[in-house]
Amino acid sequence: MASPAASSPVPPPGTVRVHAAADETLTGEAVALDVQPLGFFLRAVGCLIDMLAGIALLVAGSLVLTALVAGGTIPDSAFRIGVIVLLVAVTVVVPTAVETLSRGRSLGRWAVGGRIVRVDGGATGFRQAFIRALVGVLELWFTFGGVAAIVGMFTPRAQRLGDLLAGTASERTRTRPLPPAAPGIPPGMEAWAAVADVSRLPDRLAARMARFVRGADALEPAARARVAAGLAEAVRPYVSPLPAVEPETLVRAAAAVRRDREYRALMLENERAAALTEPD
Rank of each mutant, 00 (worst) to 15 (best):
P241H: 06
R236E: 08
V98K: 10
G152Y: 07
P37F: 00
V90Q: 07
V31E: 13
G14Q: 14
A67F: 13
G39W: 05
V151W: 03
E99P: 04
A234L: 12
T155S: 04
L65E: 02
R105A: 14
V213L: 02
L178V: 10
T277L: 14
F212Q: 11
D76L: 11
L231F: 07
A60R: 09
P221N: 10
V85N: 01
M209W: 02
P11H: 08
A148I: 06
Q128K: 00
G72N: 12
P75T: 06
N270C: 03
R127M: 11
E271R: 15
T277F: 11
M209K: 01
G46T: 05
L219E: 05
D76N: 07
E24Y: 05
D50H: 01
A229D: 14
R109Y: 07
L86N: 07
E190G: 06
E271T: 12
D120K: 02
G108A: 05
V119W: 00
I49G: 05
P75S: 12
L161M: 11
R115I: 08
P11R: 10
E233P: 00
A254M: 06
R109L: 10
R172V: 09
P243K: 05
D50K: 04
G121I: 01
L26I: 12
G14P: 10
P12L: 02
A2C: 02
R264N: 09
A5C: 03
L48N: 10
G14Y: 11
V245W: 01
W141G: 10
A273H: 07
S240V: 06
E233A: 15
R172C: 13
T249A: 05
A232N: 05
I74H: 08
N270Y: 02
A53W: 14
Q159S: 05
A53C: 15
I49Q: 03
S170G: 06
A78C: 04
E220I: 01
T91D: 03
G188Q: 10
R174W: 12
V245Y: 02
P180K: 06
R261V: 08
A216F: 08
R211L: 14
L68N: 04
P177W: 01
V147K: 00
R127K: 13
A149C: 01
A229R: 15
A275G: 08
V257N: 13
G104I: 00
V92N: 11
F154H: 11
V235I: 13
L201V: 13
L33C: 11
A273D: 07
G122D: 15
D197M: 04
P243Q: 05
V88Y: 10
E190H: 04
A169C: 14
D50T: 00
S8F: 08
A70M: 12
V64E: 11
S77R: 05
A223E: 14
R252W: 04
P156N: 11
G136L: 09
A182Q: 14
Q128I: 01
T73L: 12
I49W: 03
V83W: 12
A182V: 15
L276R: 14
R172D: 06
V98A: 07
V213N: 07
L42K: 15
A20P: 10
E24D: 15
I116V: 15
T155E: 02
L164V: 06
L165F: 12
R258Y: 06
